[in-house]
Simulated assay, not measured.
Amino acid sequence: MSLFILSAVLGAAFLHALWNGLVRGGASRVHVMMVLSAVQGGIGLVLGFFSPFPGAEVWPWLAASALVHTAYKTFLTFAYEHGDLSRVYPLARGTAPLIVLVVGAAFGTDHLAVSEALGIAVLGAGIFLLATGVFTSGESVRLLPYAMGAALATASYTLIDGQGARIGGNAAAYVAWMFAADGVLFALVMSVLRGRGAWPARAGVWGAGSVAAVASYASYAIVVWAMTEAPIALVAAIRETSIVFGVVIGWLVFRERMTWVKGASALMIAAGVAITRL
């Protein structure tokens, strides 16, 4: 992986933590996520019309991705209704690189060097350590099934989108049409689950959701492009450094308690990224 791609993926990691912080900080997580999804869909639709139309071989991947992204947003929204950013975020993101590594190795979609595999393992261990607070600090265990659902969805769409973008040959067009479809699906799902209460009315929610949407779209577009240029599992692992940014945002913005476990975990995550560069 080149230094340019590494820098781009790290920037995407920060943007990912930023939009999660905006969702977590909203008075209604559902409302912010609804705006985020709608704005993402609008951006995708506009950009899609200025991009090559995907071929028939790409649409099954786009459909599967839209479904999984909708599941991810649903699980993540409900998880943030029960837990802090510095707990939900690591747990939701943390297991995904390991799942991607195992599945990718099993199906032979990517070849990883020993140092890259070791770096992913260290990175995953740091993420799991960071998430242990959910069991020891008295936080609601109701966040666990939602966070784990988000983690499984993350691993799934990482594998789907990495292959789908490669087959399509145009990462920008792929991301645009995927988010357009996801925006419609997520609105339908949340309308069924929450009814009219899922739709926001306050102007402030639209502002926060729109900023979150731009950050989310840019973050994922960078990642999907990177997955067409570098091993999928490696890109997915480095992207998880967003957890370091998430912990800092939780600490400084939301005044969440910083512990030695969080500090040690952040160092392990940084070490994991360094090892992948050996």
Rank of each mutant, 00 (worst) to 15 (best):
M1T: 15
L3N: 08
I5T: 12
I5G: 02
L6K: 03
A8R: 03
A8P: 12
V9S: 04
A17D: 05
W19V: 00
N20S: 11
G25F: 11
R29K: 14
S37A: 08
A38W: 06
V39Y: 04
G41H: 15
G42T: 07
G42N: 05
L47V: 10
F49N: 11
S51L: 06
E57W: 01
A71V: 15
F75Q: 09
D84F: 00
D84W: 04
L85E: 03
V88D: 01
T95P: 05
A106D: 03
E116S: 01
A117C: 06
G124Y: 02
G126Q: 07
T132Q: 11
P145Y: 01
Y146A: 11
G149E: 13
A150M: 07
A153C: 10
A153F: 06
T154G: 10
S156K: 01
D161C: 07
G162A: 06
Q163T: 03
G164A: 06
A165Y: 00
G169H: 08
A172N: 10
A176G: 02
F179M: 05
A180Q: 08
G183H: 00
F186N: 00
V192K: 04
R196G: 14
A213T: 12
A213S: 09
S216R: 13
S219L: 11
V224P: 01
A226M: 09
M227V: 05
E229P: 09
A233W: 09
L234Y: 03
A236G: 10
R239G: 03
T241N: 02
I243L: 06
F254T: 06
K262S: 01
S265T: 13
A270T: 08
G272P: 00
V273I: 08
A274L: 10
L278N: 06
